[in-house]
Design a protein around this nucleic acid. Structure first.
Length: 514
RNA sequence: GGGCGCGUAGCUCAACGGCAGAGCAGUGGCCUUUUAAGCCAUUGGUUGAGAGUUCGAAUCUCUCCGCGCUCACCA
């Protein structure tokens, strides 16, 4: 049972009062002839005098009220923007003006009909002849007040800023912070543009299982769940890779999937336990072709969504125009750390070389993990403009194909932007015997208790034995792309409902909702 | 999980060992073109929870809850 604050109790009394007066505080239907933006556009298009003949019915949420005795001003906000309302005793009677002032509150949804006009100060305004409550708000929105300065800019006062409250109560955040709504519009537009690009290139969108009997395709710990009737444990997928590549065996030549991956790992500003991934696989292509498609896809998407190849991200301006810089991983590491990984074919030797630089890597790390360590310690922070790092060590890439002239190196690239990894791609391994060998190597190289070691997927090998065309594959965290496009530092800002600990018991913390 | 920091009214924030405050929101009043409308009056708090130190705790200590930054793991 909810306990109400004193402010809420006052509003509940208003609801009772409205009911006594025969007003339904939650009527079933609304009427609306124009959005606020449509009404303003129609007024401007018709011209000042003709525009004044326009009779419209608008609907929205009350965001500001300025009662002045026998007249009242208010602003309502709908999905398109704001509109000022003007209530005047002469037209609707003192009783109606009083009712609006006393029984209606900030946050209530109303509809209002009347004609449009321009006030002394120049604002297009609805001169209200009739209005109706659409939904009464019991709780006060954590609303900011906006001040329009003489130069036209908007100064916000006391906006809702508490990041925890904003994430837990995203509905309130969205209701009062328009820029948050904009972030999610950009997110949706990004997804749409990516799909448009891939469809145009002939890729088929598919859906593969989220619940899997065996997980794979990435190095991560899975979430485990249980199916009661089948009496077996299931895993939430950590990647789509092994299922999508099975489809290439089935002669689907270009497939992609956009969906949720789940990784039971740490949470940070760039990691959420569930995140949205794009993967595509392209038969008869190699990683160089995928590289070209990648820079085309991202620059196309930036153009579609933001109207520009250049974005401002944090302190940097980033230019997605192709071609992107290409840098061999070995060269990049050598130039930034002074360590040439080719000089150190064993983990012991490489370990010593890294320690000489003053860093302290995990003494038990494999050679591949040490290379990854060098990459993130020295090279990654320097990669601000879009850069393809290519040619990775085989032992950290168990699903990628070796270079024909160098069995210890695989045809793999990762694109880095603004100092973090955006995507990962390779020429896919399609030799079932080699693949089986790699799975077995993974089992040996990683300690038994290492939760990231790859389980051997027999069905995947069975599929590959039927013959898999040579192909290039690609994976990208969509959330990270949206972070770049919306200039957000934290993944939580681009997720509507990011993962949070459950709220404490009632009253245990300040966001405990009563 | 480790380290550092934060949590005060519905929102944004003061007070930092000595009477818990301000602005906005709310409530009552005045006000017929205002726009953070204005003016007058006024309500609102177990200072995240619990324990301890002290004559006295929002303030110092400890435990717990939640969040942020960071390290480790990962996309």
């Amino acid at each position: 049972m909810a306990e109400y604050t004193s402010l809420e109790k006052i509003r509940l009394q208003k609801i009772e009062q409205l009911r006594l007066e025969g007003v339904d505080p939650y009527p079933t239907r609304a009427e609306r002839t124009h959005t606020n933006l449509e009404a303003i556009t129609a007024f401007e298009k018709a011209g000042e005098s003709a525009g004044s003949e326009l009779k419209v019915t608008l609907a929205g949420r009350i965001r500001g009220v300025r009662p002045m005795g026998k007249v009242s001003f208010a602003h309502i906000e709908d999905g398109s923007g704001r509109m000022q309302l003007f209530f005047r005793m002469n037209e609707i009677g003192q009783e109606q003006v009083d009712k609006f002032n006393k029984l209606y509150d900030l946050g209530d949804f109303i509809q209002a009909s009347g004609i449009l006009f321009r006030t002394k100060t120049g604002e297009i305004t609805l001169h209200v002849r009739d209005f109706k409550l659409l939904a009464k708000a019991v709780s006060q929105l954590p609303a900011a007040k906006d001040e329009t300065l003489p130069d036209g800019s908007v100064l916000r006062h006391a906006a809702l800023e508490d990041s925890e409250l904003r994430a837990r109560q995203r509905y309130a955040d969205l209701a009062v912070n328009p820029e948050v709504r904009e972030t999610f519009r950009i997110r949706a537009a990004t997804f749409k543009a990516i799909r448009e690009f891939l469809e145009e290139k002939g890729f088929l969108e598919v859906e593969t299982p989220v619940l899997q009997p065996l997980y794979g395709g990435a190095a991560a710990r899975p979430f485990i769940t249980h199916h009661n009737e089948l009496e077996q444990d299931m895993y939430l997928r950590i990647s789509f890779e092994l299922y999508l590549k099975r489809l290439l065996v089935g002669n689907l030549e270009k497939v992609y999937e956009i969906g949720r991956d789940f990784r039971n790992e740490g949470v940070s500003y760039k990691h959420n336990p569930e995140f949205t991934q794009l993967e595509f696989y392209w038969a008869y292509a190699d990683y160089l072709q995928v590289m070209e498609l990648t820079e085309q896809m991202i620059s196309f998407t930036a153009g579609r969504v933001l109207g520009s190849q250049k974005i401002k991200y944090q302190a940097n301006e980033i230019d997605f125009s192709p071609p992107w810089k290409r840098l061999e991983l070995r060269t990049g590491i050598r130039e930034t750390s002074g360590v040439d990984i080719a000089d150190h074919p064993t983990s012991e030797s490489l370990q010593k070389a890294i320690v000489k630089t003053g860093k302290k890597p995990d003494p038990k790390a494999t050679r591949g993990k040490l290379i990854d360590y060098l990459l993130s310690e020295f090279l990654e922070p320097t990669l601000i403009q879009p850069t393809f790092l290519y040619d990775y060590p085989r032992d950290i890439s168990p699903l990628a194909k070796s270079k024909p002239d160098d069995p210890m190196t695989v045809e793999r690239f990762e694109a880095y932007v603004a100092g973090f990894e955006l995507c990962n791609a390779f020429t896919e391994l399609n030799d079932p015997l080699d693949q089986e060998q790699r799975f077995l190597e993974m089992g040996r190289d990683y300690a038994e208790e290492d939760a990231e070691r790859h389980p051997l997927d027999e069905d995947y090998l069975r599929a590959m034995r039927y013959g898999m065309p040579p192909n290039g594959g690609f994976g990208m965290g969509m959330d990270r792309l949206v972070m770049l496009f919306t200039n957000q530092h934290s993944i939580r800002e681009v997720l509507l409902f990011p993962a949070l600990r459950k709220e404490g018991s009632v009253g245990q913390n300040r966001t405990g909702n009563k």
